[in-house]
Amino acid sequence: MGVCRRHLLAAALLFLSTTAADPNDERCLNHLSESLSDPHNNLRNWTKSIFSNPCEGSISALQGATCNNGRIYKLSLSNLSLKGTISPYLSNCTNLQSLDLGSNSITGPIPPDLQYLVNLAVLNLSSNRLSGPIPEQLALCAYLNVIDLHGNLISGQIPQQLGLLVRLSVFDVSDNKLSGPIPGSLGNRSGNLVRFNVSSFEGNKKLYGYPLPPLKSKGLSIWVIVAIGVGSGFVSLVLSFTAVCIWLRITEKKLDEDEGKINQHMPDY
Rank of each mutant, 00 (worst) to 15 (best):
C245V: 14
N24C: 05
G187P: 08
V173C: 10
G219K: 11
L75S: 01
G156W: 05
T66P: 00
P133L: 01
L82C: 06
P211N: 10
W223A: 11
N45S: 08
L32I: 12
S155E: 15
V235T: 13
S185Y: 07
N68T: 08
N188P: 03
A139T: 02
P214C: 09
S232T: 15
L90M: 09
I106F: 04
P181E: 10
D148W: 00
L114R: 00
L212P: 02
A65S: 11
T107L: 04
L153E: 12
Y116V: 00
S232Y: 13
S127V: 05
G151H: 03
L75T: 04
I106Q: 01
L153N: 13
R129N: 09
Q160W: 04
V198H: 13
F201C: 07
N79G: 01
W223H: 10
I147N: 02
N68D: 11
G151T: 05
L96N: 03
L14T: 11
Y73Q: 12
D175S: 15
G191D: 08
Y269V: 10
Y208H: 15
L114Y: 00
V3S: 14
L255G: 01
I59N: 11
N95F: 15
A20K: 08
R195H: 09
L117W: 01
L123F: 04
L186K: 05
P267H: 05
L114W: 00
P54F: 04
K206M: 13
S37W: 04
P112A: 08
P135Y: 07
Y116F: 14
P135F: 06
P23Y: 07
A21N: 03
S126R: 06
G187F: 08
I225H: 04
Y73R: 11
L144S: 01
G191R: 10
G180M: 10
L248N: 12
V122R: 02
S60L: 07
I106A: 01
L144C: 02
Q160S: 09
S98K: 12
P112Y: 11
Q137D: 12
I154Y: 04
R249P: 00
I222P: 01
S52L: 09
C141Q: 09
E202D: 12
K177R: 15
L149P: 03
D268I: 15
V230W: 13
D148P: 00
N53I: 01
K48S: 14
L77R: 09
T18R: 10
A20F: 05
T107K: 10
N69D: 13
D25F: 02
S78W: 02
K218I: 12
V166Y: 04
E257I: 14
L80S: 02
T18V: 07
A121P: 00
Q97Y: 08
R195A: 11
I262Y: 07
C55P: 06
R129E: 03
A11G: 02
A10S: 08
